[in-house]
Amino acid sequence: MNILWDFDGTLFDTYPAYTDIFYEELGGQVSKEEILAHLKISFTHAVRHYGLTEQQIKRVFAMEQDIDPALTPPFPYVEKVLQLAEINVIMTHKPRNEVIHILNHYGWTDYFNEIVAGDDGYPRKPDSASYVYLHNKYRIDLAVGDRELDIIPARSIGIQTCLFQNNTPGADLYLTTYEDFFKIFKT
């Protein structure tokens, strides 16, 4: 199976650290639960919702770059899924250097045939250009993400979709844990 992965919230549990950054930037005046709900829609959505200034956005990005990878752990069992797949690729809005930093920290760089990162020049999701590129090169069987935004481009080009820890209608499959993956894809 050839799998296209989102990064934040799909392979790695990054949202708690990002929520803490927003919480700090907003002066602790908004609950972490509310911040998380907006971040799960998208970073851009959260920025607009809270009316962050350019200066605040720059501070958020600077704090994000300084996060210790130990605070953004992989989800349990996801490494076993990576090991099962024939090909794994990543499509993320996150800058390449941050992706590589986290992958290197966990020794996971070799699991991925290719990474399309936020600074590679592709339009942001839900535009399908990056998915088309990866699908044409690797014949992707399944796109896995934690937000509807991650599956829209896959659906638009006929790739099966999986939402992780999200029950938004429209995905082909839903997983609450990666241990469930083995139950669904027993060979």
Rank of each mutant, 00 (worst) to 15 (best):
N2Y: 07
L4Y: 04
W5Q: 07
W5A: 10
F7M: 09
F7E: 06
D8Q: 08
D8Y: 06
L11G: 09
D13M: 05
Y15S: 06
A17P: 10
D20I: 06
I21D: 08
I21E: 06
F22H: 09
E25K: 10
E25N: 11
L26M: 09
G27D: 05
G28C: 08
V30A: 03
S31F: 06
K32D: 04
I35D: 02
L36N: 13
H38A: 04
L39E: 03
K40A: 01
I41S: 01
S42F: 01
A46M: 01
V47H: 01
V47I: 15
R48I: 00
R48Y: 02
H49G: 00
Y50S: 02
G51E: 00
G51S: 00
E54M: 04
V60H: 00
F61L: 14
M63S: 11
M63Y: 07
E64H: 05
Q65D: 14
Q65E: 15
D66K: 15
I67K: 01
D68R: 01
A70V: 14
A70Y: 02
L71N: 13
L71P: 00
T72S: 09
T72Y: 00
P73K: 06
P73N: 06
F75M: 03
Y77D: 14
V81G: 07
V81M: 15
Q83G: 04
L84E: 11
A85S: 14
E86R: 14
V89D: 00
V89P: 02
R96E: 12
V99M: 05
N104D: 15
G107K: 11
T109V: 12
N113Y: 12
E114Y: 10
I115V: 15
V116L: 14
V116F: 12
A117Y: 09
D119P: 09
D120Y: 08
D120R: 05
G121S: 08
G121N: 09
Y122C: 07
Y122T: 04
P123H: 05
P123K: 09
P123F: 06
S128R: 15
S128K: 15
S128C: 11
A129Q: 13
A129P: 02
V132Y: 05
Y133E: 10
K137V: 13
K137I: 13
K137R: 15
I140D: 02
D141V: 05
G145H: 08
L149A: 04
I151R: 08
I152V: 15
R155F: 00
R155K: 15
R155H: 11
G158D: 07
I159P: 12
I159S: 13
Q160D: 13
T161L: 02
Q165T: 01
N166R: 00
N167F: 04
G170R: 00
A171M: 01
D172V: 01
Y174W: 04
T177R: 14
T177E: 14
Y178R: 06
D180A: 12
D180S: 11
F182L: 14
F182M: 10
I184K: 13
I184M: 13
K186T: 12
K186H: 13
T187V: 12
